[in-house]
Design a protein around this nucleic acid. Structure first.
Lengths: 229, 229
DNA sequence: TCAAATCTTTGATACATATCAAAAGTGTGT
DNA sequence: ACACACTTTTGATATGTATCAAAGATTTGA
């Protein structure tokens, strides 16, 4: 129905990857696009599943994780409004390495593989977008790896806080809001929830930050930088 | 000189990213391409440097590493003939996160940023190639992350051996050749050289493999698989 | 508004891995 | 064939981080 397509076009435009593309492009993509809703805790796709396209987040928050058979998991990324995920598996035509799980009730758009691949063949602007998207993801993934592999827990947490401070440069003023539950952030930083908790307290004790629930005030930015070096 | 361009075209064709592209495309790329030689141990680019283009390996072997100020390093990737590197920083127009160091004497081609970006704007086939290249890199980087974060040393080494066994599926027959010095492989697997050495011996003691210098024979593949699970 | 569920903190202990030091092995150039 | 540099192995010890257990907080739902 035309109204569906129209609403999909609008949602696509709000995503970072499809924003500001010609309306004709979005219209063609919208034809292969469907809206899907997921309740908190539900699995959008699991590791080892076949990729059917990419997902764009309209509302809600999800975690992308790698998992062991024993149920051990590690958060690779937390995605929300305007983000998209699942590109790598779709474009390489391989199975999903990551699982995507809704952290809150979510509305997603699913853009079908064929639609996207077809459009990509003739659409230079879309290809450029995808290149920008992929290289950005790769760059960030490398940066995450650096943080995890080169620093100990204290340094990783310090680096994380500084990064968030920069991201929230607007209303921040020396404060950040943790973007998710502490356990999930701990996992993204490759440590247990317990260790993350203790590490935050250590940073408090050393006078670098002040913690109040999910709000962290940076007391001594220079000191944090030294720890994160 | 025309002969230079011709030789560059040939080298570019041998790389995975530019292979089988129309000769006209390669000709235009060759104009912005220069041949550069690096002696063993020399630095092609360092962390924090400005990206000037991408590098294609004609001959030799290099390591891509992340480093701390204290000189701590971690090998992210080992590249050789036909590989290219430095795409992410070039395409995102950000500083290099990784350092590239020659492990042996190397001949590289450097394709200038402007040349590549210009060509990319009109060249659909090249864009597709780049998309394939980036998504493959992203997928493999995610896979590396999985190996490093989800398994302990014994499992990481087991997984590594199985992966190599698959890669060398040809002349392998139950044997693999380590693709670099053990210390570098240890680093890629996020452990010390000492620990890697001990881990190999443990796998020997358990009857899964037999080590002879840089040659590893897989004695019990199923057993390895269980350890790598 | 209270109870149930979920998340976070704290404490005690165990374990994987790093570090330091030195010996043994391997290769390389002359 | 030898000496020198580099790589790998082995041993003893230190350390960072995980694990297990339980008590406090916070959020959620009826």
């Amino acid at each position: 129905m035309a109204s569906h397509l129209q609403s999909h076009v609008e949602t696509l435009t709000r995503s970072s990857i499809f924003s500001n593309l010609p309306i004709e492009t979005l219209g063609r993509l919208a034809i292969g696009t469907s809206e899907v809703a997921f309740g908190r805790g539900s699995v959008v796709f699991g590791r080892g599943s076949v990729s059917t396209g990419i997902h764009v987040v309209d509302s809600g928050q999800l975690k992308l994780t790698i998992e062991t058979l024993q149920g051990d998991e590690h958060v690779v990324e937390i995605v929300q409004d305007g983000d998209c995920f699942g590109e790598a598996a779709m474009l390489t035509n391989r199975l999903h390495l990551l699982s995507a799980v809704a952290l809150s009730d979510c509305k997603l758009l699913h853009v079908a593989r064929n639609t996207l691949i077809n459009e990509l063949e003739h659409n230079q602007a879309l290809a450029q977008r995808l290149i920008a998207n992929l290289s950005d993801r790769l760059y960030r993934r490398t940066s995450d790896m650096e943080n995890i592999l080169l620093r100990k827990a204290l340094g990783r947490v310090a680096r994380f806080i500084l990064d968030e401070l920069e991201r929230e440069a607007d209303s921040a003023n020396g404060q950040i809001q943790l973007p998710a539950r502490k356990g999930l952030i701990a996992s993204k930083l490759n440590m247990t929830q317990e260790h993350f908790s203790r590490t935050l307290r250590t940073l408090c004790a050393r006078g670098k930050i002040a913690v109040n629930g999910a709000t962290i005030a940076v007391v001594n930015e220079e000191g944090l930088r030294q720890i994160a070096a």
